[in-house]
Amino acid sequence: MLKFFNSLFGRVVIALVAGIVIGAVFPHFAQSLRPLGDGFLKLIKMVIGPIVFCVVVSGMAHAGDLRKVGRVGLKSVIYFEIMTTIALVIGAVLAYATRPGVGMNINLHSLDPASLSTYTENAKSLKDTAGFLLKIIPDTAINAFATGDILQILVFSVLFGSALSLLGNKAQRVSSLIDELSQVFFRVM
Rank of each mutant, 00 (worst) to 15 (best):
M189A: 11
T129L: 15
T140M: 11
K42F: 11
K42S: 15
V25N: 03
K124Y: 11
L167H: 01
K45L: 13
G23Q: 09
I178M: 03
L151S: 07
V25E: 00
F186T: 06
K135Q: 12
G49W: 00
V72I: 07
L111K: 05
K42T: 10
M1E: 09
T129D: 08
F26W: 10
H62R: 14
G101I: 08
V155G: 03
I20S: 07
G148E: 06
V184R: 09
K135D: 15
V52K: 01
F160H: 11
N169E: 15
S162I: 08
G23C: 05
P50K: 02
L133S: 04
K75A: 14
L94E: 09
V13M: 10
L166M: 14
A92S: 14
K75P: 00
T118K: 12
V21E: 01
D38P: 03
D179Y: 01
A171L: 06
G23D: 07
F160I: 02
P27C: 08
I51Y: 04
V17N: 02
I142C: 04
M83T: 13
I90T: 14
A87N: 12
S58A: 08
G59F: 00
G168P: 10
A15E: 00
V89D: 07
H62Y: 08
L2M: 09
Q183P: 00
F26P: 09
Q152I: 05
M83V: 13
K124D: 11
F156A: 06
A146Y: 14
N169L: 13
R187E: 05
V184H: 07
P27Q: 13
D149S: 12
S125L: 12
S157W: 00
R11E: 06
L16H: 07
L2A: 15
G19A: 09
A171M: 04
S115L: 15
P35I: 06
M189G: 10
S165G: 05
V12F: 10
P50D: 02
F132L: 14
G10R: 03
I137N: 07
M83A: 14
T84A: 15
M104N: 12
L41P: 01
Q183S: 08
T140K: 13
H62N: 13
V12N: 01
L167V: 05
L8C: 07
G59L: 01
I137L: 14
T140A: 12
I86P: 09
R71K: 10
K68C: 00
G161M: 04
N105A: 11
L164P: 01
I150V: 06
G37Q: 05
L33C: 14
D128P: 10
I86S: 07
L88C: 12
R34C: 05
V72H: 02
T129F: 13
A24H: 09
A146D: 15
L151K: 04
K68G: 04
F40T: 10
M189S: 09
V72Y: 05
P100I: 10
T118G: 14
L43N: 14
A130Y: 13
L177S: 09
M189W: 15
A18D: 04
V13S: 02
R67C: 00
G23T: 12
M189Y: 14
